[in-house]
Amino acid sequence: MPAVHDRGGLPADGPIDRSDHQWEDWEHVTNALVGVLRRRDLINVDELRRGIEAMAPEEYESSSYYERWSASIETLLVEKGILTEAEIDAVAAKLDTEWER
């Protein structure tokens, strides 16, 4: 049974959806964060992939591309002690409150 990211040759239903979505702001931010963190040698692309591959299979499959990056960035920053889950929880809750207003 291949790992969830190892997808070559797995059965696929139906045609390839060729529509492109407009990038949302947070997707640009995610992409740029990886760029800066790589420049700073705080994360590398192999770690980023490992963080993605560590996602629960059902979460991997139901997430969009940059949602997977987002999950991996969080895993790595917490693992390296650069941020804590509690800090992220607190700011995320605040952002959600502002968002709902």
């Binding site: 947070w26 931010v29 987002s70 969080e74 941020l83 800090e87 605040k94 959600d96």
Partner: peptide, 11 residues
Amino acid sequence: RATRILAIRQL
């Protein structure tokens, strides 16, 4: 996940 990455950016 979008909210969390924006929180990470801010931090």
